[in-house]
């Protein structure tokens, strides 16, 4: 357990904002993110327990968006690390500034005589040199990458580690130290501990199963497709100016579409895109032809579009009737 009173004193900024589950819900709402109760609970607990959140769920349900909204609400910097196969320490944590090191060696070469000037014997010269031993591997020559940057932020930050499932298992193991202790070890310097633990959000599309060790260190949040009412509220905030009737029809239609047997079900992001398009086209209410023409905004595979196209009249009729 990480009881770190020194940290608690300085995190007051987030502490005053994250006071209860309701406060989180409202705060995220103000930042344009309509959170379900479960999401709000996760954020609340993550802040209190100082634990990262691992967010899983289908693409486009707002996993990455959650981190952005959280940063906006708390007024913290968002540091993002996009994961991909082949991502390693040098790109994620730190890199030595080789060029600078090289330059300094050249400069120092000329100064060498001055440094060693008075030493008569070899041991004496070496002794003098040893005093300068580690200058090239000091924080001055360190190029911080996202993870190190996140640890060094003086006011804390939101660290988004996006699509962790895309990285390799070795990288996952490398993250464990950061996630459990909010510190990173650089062999030449030692452990660098975060002054203020960042709020860490990891997202995963379930491309592969993550290791148990990683999961154990995180709160595990699964965001699925939203309920009709929640989705309607999301559309309301993200697409301002849309009529209530159309909004309900859109949500009703998409919800019905998700019940079909499709390769890729439409997500919230697709619903938002579609709603925006319909708004631009000045559509007052759904009609069959319009839906058919814009179906490719919702569905990303030709086979899915074909399968849904046949059912459009039926779905539109049901979407129109199911609105309350």
């Amino acid at each position: 357990m990480r009881a770190s009173p020194c940290c608690r004193l300085v995190t007051a900024a987030t502490d005053t904002l994250v006071t209860s589950i309701e406060a989180v819900e409202q705060g995220l709402g103000a930042a344009g993110y309509i959170a379900s109760r479960q999401i709000a609970t996760a954020v609340f607990l993550a802040e209190r327990l100082e634990k990262p959140i691992l967010v899983e769920g289908p693409a486009g349900v707002g996993k990455t968006e959650l981190a952005k909204a959280l940063a906006t609400w708390l007024g913290l910097k968002l540091i993002r690390l996009q994961c991909y196969e082949g991502l390693d320490e040098a790109k994620a944590l730190y890199e030595w500034k080789y060029g600078k090191q090289l330059l300094y060696t050249q400069i120092l070469k000329d100064k060498l005589a001055e440094v060693l000037g008075h030493a008569d014997t070899l041991p004496a010269a070496l002794d003098r040199l040893h005093r300068f031993g580690d200058i090239f591997y000091s924080p001055d020559f360190l190029e911080p990458r996202p993870l190190l940057q996140a640890l060094q932020q003086p006011t804390g930050c939101v660290l988004l580690i996006d699509e962790i499932d895309k990285s390799e298992q070795e990288f996952e193991a490398f993250l464990l130290e950061l996630l459990s202790d909010y510190q990173a070890t650089i062999p030449e310097i030692g452990a660098i501990v975060a002054e203020i633990p960042p709020i860490v959000i990891l997202t995963s599309n379930a491309g592969r199963d993550l290791g148990d060790a990683l999961k154990r260190r995180c709160l595990h949040l699964h965001i699925g497709f939203p309920e009709p009412r929640l989705e309607s509220r999301i559309i309301e905030t993200r697409v301002p100016g849309i009529e209530l009737v159309l909004r309900q029809q859109i949500v009703g239609f998409v919800q019905l579409l998700r019940k079909l047997d499709l390769k890729k079900l439409p997500s919230v992001s697709e619903t938002i895109d579609w709603a925006r398009a319909l708004l631009l086209l000045h559509v007052a209410s759904l009609d069959v032809d319009m839906v058919r023409d814009t179906l490719n905004l919702l569905l990303k595979y030709e086979a899915d579009v074909e399968a849904a196209r046949i059912q459009v009249p039926d779905l539109v009729a049901r979407a129109a009737s199911c609105r309350s």
């Binding site: 589950i21 109760r37 479960q38 609970t41 996760a42 607990l45 899983e56 148990d212 999961k215 154990r216 709160l219 595990h220 949040l221 699964h222």
Partner: peptide
């Protein structure tokens, strides 16, 4: 909230949830 808290900290897959 109690249920969510338990689900968040204990269950690590959708099935487990």
């Amino acid at each position: 909230a109690l249920r969510d808290a338990l689900a968040l900290s204990l269950a690590k897959t959708l099935d487990e949830k």
